[in-house]
Simulated assay, not measured.
Amino acid sequence: MKTLELTFNAEFGTARISIRNPKEPIDPAQVKAVMNQLVTTDVFKSPNGDLVSPKSARVISRETQDIELP
Rank of each mutant, 00 (worst) to 15 (best):
A15Q: 12
I17H: 12
N9V: 13
P70Q: 09
P28V: 03
L6F: 11
E68T: 06
V31K: 14
L4G: 12
R20S: 07
D42S: 09
P54G: 08
E11F: 06
P25A: 02
L4I: 13
A15R: 13
L51Y: 04
S56K: 13
T14N: 13
A57F: 15
R20F: 04
E5G: 00
N36I: 00
I19R: 01
P47F: 04
N21W: 11
I26N: 15
K55S: 07
V52A: 11
P22H: 04
P54F: 08
Q30E: 11
T3Y: 15
P22D: 02
K2C: 02
K45S: 13
L51H: 08
S18P: 00
P25H: 03
R20Y: 04
R58S: 01
I19L: 11
V52I: 09
T14P: 04
G13I: 07
A15H: 10
V39E: 04
I60A: 07
E5L: 03
K32H: 13
I67M: 12
E11C: 08
F44K: 12
V59A: 10
K55H: 12
N36F: 00
T41L: 07
P47T: 09
D27M: 07
K23M: 05
N9P: 00
K32Y: 12
V34F: 11
R20V: 01
T64S: 14
D50P: 00
L51V: 01
I67W: 09
Q37Y: 04
K45I: 01
L38S: 12
E68P: 03
M1W: 02
T40D: 14
K45F: 02
A33T: 10
N9I: 14
I60K: 15
Q65M: 03
S56R: 11
A10N: 03
N36K: 12
G49K: 14
I19T: 09
E11L: 11
D50S: 10
A57Q: 00
G13A: 08
P22G: 05
E63P: 00
R20G: 08
N9W: 13
E11K: 15
V43Y: 07
N9A: 12
D42T: 01
K32I: 05
K23N: 02
F44S: 07
F8T: 04
A29S: 12
N9C: 10
L6Q: 10
L6C: 06
L4Q: 13
S56D: 09
F44P: 02
N36V: 00
F44R: 10
K55M: 10
T41K: 15
N21I: 00
D66W: 13
G13F: 13
T14Q: 15
T3C: 05
R58C: 01
D50K: 12
R16S: 10
R62C: 04
A29F: 03
S61D: 05
F8S: 01
A29I: 08
V31T: 11
V39N: 06
K45L: 06
M35K: 11
L51D: 03
P70M: 08
A29Q: 11
Q37F: 06
I60H: 08
L69G: 01
V59H: 09
Q30R: 14
V52H: 04
S18G: 04
F8Y: 11
T40P: 05
V34H: 07
D27Y: 09
P54C: 03
K23V: 06
G13H: 15
A33K: 14
T14S: 14
I60Q: 13
F44N: 06
E63G: 14
K23Y: 02
